[in-house]
Design a protein around this nucleic acid. Structure first.
Lengths: 181, 181
DNA sequence: GTCTATACGCTGATAGAC
DNA sequence: GTCTATCAGCGTATAGAC
C-alpha cells in the first residue's frame, strides 16, 4: 500500500527528530504500524534508504511551504520562517537538520549528500529573503545577508536543541532574539 | 590504574563528539586501549556512569579555562570564548552540548541533570560577561544580556554542527558574525 | 505487499578466576 | 584492576512462502 510507505516515512521522521537516527530501529516503526520488520525492508531495503527519503520529503515540504509564502511581505515571511518550528518545539521535536547534523560520522554518503542539499536549500531561501529585506530597508541588520542567514539558521536550529536540555523559556528567548532584526 | 580511567573518559569524550552517544560502544574504547570491555565496566559500571563523568569533567575544564581568562579585558575574554572550539572544528568534533542535546530522549536522568548543569554554567558565565561588557560600553548589542548570551551560545553550538554538513567556511562565517558585537 | 523464519554480529552487562 | 567466559536481547538484513 502507498499509505504504508508514507506512514513509515512519517514515523521515521518523528523518531529521528526525537531519539536520533542511531537510536531508532525498524522495530520501533513496525510495532507502531502493527506490521513486521520485513515489510519495512520491502519499502526501504536499508536504513539509509529510509533516511534519505525522510530528508527528501522534508526538502519538498520546505519548498511547498515557503512557496506558499511568496505573496506575503518580507517581514511576514521572515516571521513565518522563524516561527516555523513552534509546533515541533511544543512536542520537544528537533528540526531534521539539528537531529542529523550531530551524527554526520555515522551517516551514509547518500544521506550526507541529501542533508547538504537540504542545508543549501534552506540557507539559499533565507539569504535571499534577508538580502531583499535589507535592500528594501525592511530589515536593518548590519552584517552581509549570507552571514546573517547563517546566524539566524544556526540560532534557530540550536534553540530546539538547547530547549530540550534547559527547558523554561529557552526556545522563546532565542526566537525573540532572532526576531530583533 | 588512574591513568586507564582518565584515558577511558578522554576517548569517550571524543567518541561522543564525533559519533554521538548512542553510536559509540565500550568496544570502541577497549580496542583503542588494548584492554577488554569488562575493564571499562570496572571503572564505569554503566554507560550512563561514563557519560556523566564526561560531562562533569567538561564542566570542570570550562571553569578552569574561563578562570584563567579573568585578568583579560572583556572583549578579549569574549574573543577567547568565541574561538574556544577552533581546534575541535578543525578535527570535525562537536562541542559536548551539541553532541548530546540531540538525543535527550535517550539519555539517563543522571546524564540529563548534569547536562543541564553544564548549560547553566556556560550561559551564566556568558551572560555575566556580556552584561559587564554592555555596562562598560565595550559591546554595543541592543538586546538584553541574557538574550544575547543565548543567541551567541546557540550560534556557536550550531556552527560546529552545520560545518560538518555544509563544510566550506560555515564555521568561520558564523564565528565572524558572532564577533560583530 | 506482507508474512514467517532465520541469520549473525554487536550491544551493555555480569560472574568469577587471577 | 584486568582478565576469560558467558549472557540475553536487539540490531539490520535476507530468503522464500503466501
Amino acid at each position: 500500500m502507498k499509505d504504508t510507505r508514507n506512514e513509515i516515512v512519517s514515523i521515521a521522521d518523528e523518531l529521528i527528530r526525537t531519539k536520533g537516527y542511531n537510536a531508532f530501529s525498524y522495530s520501533d516503526i513496525s510495532t507502531r504500524l502493527n506490521i513486521k520488520n520485513a515489510s519495512i525492508h520491502y519499502h526501504f531495503p536499508t536504513k539509509s534508504d529510509l533516511g534519505v527519503e525522510v530528508i527528501k520529503e522534508t526538502i519538498e515540504q520546505f519548498k511547498i511551504v515557503t512557496d506558499s509564502w511568496r505573496k506575503l511581505t518580507l517581514d511576514k515571511q521572515f516571521k513565518k520562517f522563524v516561527t516555523m518550528h513552534d509546533k515541533s518545539n511544543k512536542k520537544h521535536w528537533l528540526c531534521l537538520m539539528g537531529a542529523l547534523s550531530s551524527s554526520t560520522d555515522t551517516l551514509s554518503p547518500e544521506m550526507l549528500k541529501e542533508l547538504k542539499k537540504m542545508g543549501t536549500v534552506i540557507l539559499d531561501y533565507l539569504t535571499e529573503l534577508l538580502r531583499e529585506g535589507k535592500e528594501q530597508k525592511v530589515f536593518s541588520y548590519t552584517s552581509d545577508p549570507k552571514t546573517k542567514a547563517y546566524l539566524v539558521q544556526s540560532s534557530l536550529l540550536a534553540s530546539l536543541l538547547l530547549d530540550n536540555v534547559l527547558g523554561g523559556d529557552t526556545y522563546k528567548i532565542i526566537q525573540n532574539g532572532v526576531l530583533e532584526i
